[in-house]
Simulated scan of single mutants.
Amino acid sequence: MNKKKFVVFVGGGTKGHLFAAIAAAGTLDLCTYETLVITDIKVDDCKNVEYIPKMPFASKGFLKYFVLRIITVLQLLIKYIKRRPYKVVGFGGYTSFCPLMAAVLLRIPIIIHEQNSIMGKANSFFLPCADTVSLGFFDACKVNDNFAHKCVRTYNPIRSQIFSASSSNALNMVNFNILILGGSQGASIFDSLIPHVIDLFLGFLRDGKYMLNVCVVQQTSEGNNSKLKRFYSNNMVDATLKRFFDDIHKRYNKADIVICRSGASTIEEIVALAKPAIFVPFPFAAQNHQLYNAQFLSNLGAAWTVEQNAHAAKFIAQILFEIVSNPRKLRSVVEKLIKLRDSKRKKIRDII
């Protein structure tokens, strides 16, 4: 019986990196491969996961940070010597540094996957050492010409349940369904922003004499549900509020429009379903990559981008009203998303 190839996936720092690593690991043939996911984020109901300490860079505690890094690399060296991985696949973020460094020191082949439109610091550091560079953000992410021969355009791995969602986008002129996803870095801001959006949007509908039921499904942060419920009830808006949706594919199914952050995984889901979206980029993302992610799609006419500022609510409400008053805009966006979805890209499992 042939021995299975042992592949290590590394993702953490944010859940976007982690979920992509888990999704990629799940695509490998279990008869051929055995996988391990290394992360610094605790997750439930996930097999073959190993945790390492959280080590975000902190200038005040640089010595402690440096020592922790060395210790973690040494621990991983011992682990890899005991069982040598066939390949180590890094998904960016500071969490990937130690597992990839240990692999490089032992001359184990590494693959780095860049999800975003701008390559992050960890991936940039390992770019010269990588055997293969997987670029998941369409044609947006550029690398130095010296490393172009290593690069392969791939899909960003997304949750398997997303593929059971429908990509139908016929606008329902009786109920207008809005899905709001804050992600790991935005739900609390959306808790305060979205009520202003809905209030303005309802005003536009009244002024335009549109008889439309507005239905909201919103991911919320802890502690704000009761306040939001009162707001939606007072404005006769059918609202479903949860901190996390374990049936996200069903929520996507019903949505006419999605208001969300613009992390790479979220954008890949939007494209996979050809689901129109208004992106509100997280303004404190590393290298402002969420803004560049969102602008890549909006510049193609495949989405809308609204920056998080004092005017955001008004701009989002105006976009919602434009969609209702001119459904052809929605169809145009869907057509462009389908074109992006059908662009030729490989899957990560094809390059392992």
Rank of each mutant, 00 (worst) to 15 (best):
F201P: 00
L171R: 02
R251S: 00
K121M: 08
I111F: 11
L28A: 12
A317P: 13
K227F: 01
S166W: 00
Q295E: 11
K329R: 12
N172G: 02
G12S: 05
F245T: 02
G183F: 01
T154C: 05
K254E: 00
F190D: 07
R107K: 11
N156C: 13
F245A: 00
N309D: 15
F138P: 02
G120P: 08
I278M: 09
L18S: 04
L18C: 12
F138C: 08
V152F: 05
D342T: 07
K347I: 09
K3N: 09
F147M: 12
I71F: 11
N2S: 10
V8I: 10
R153W: 13
V37G: 04
P109S: 05
L202R: 03
R83P: 15
T72R: 11
P283V: 09
I110D: 06
A165N: 04
Y51R: 10
Q295L: 13
F282G: 14
K250W: 01
N144S: 15
A313E: 09
T305W: 01
D145Q: 10
L337R: 01
L74W: 04
P283K: 07
V89Y: 11
T154M: 04
D44M: 11
V271E: 03
K15W: 08
M211T: 12
A20Q: 13
K15E: 14
F296E: 05
F279R: 12
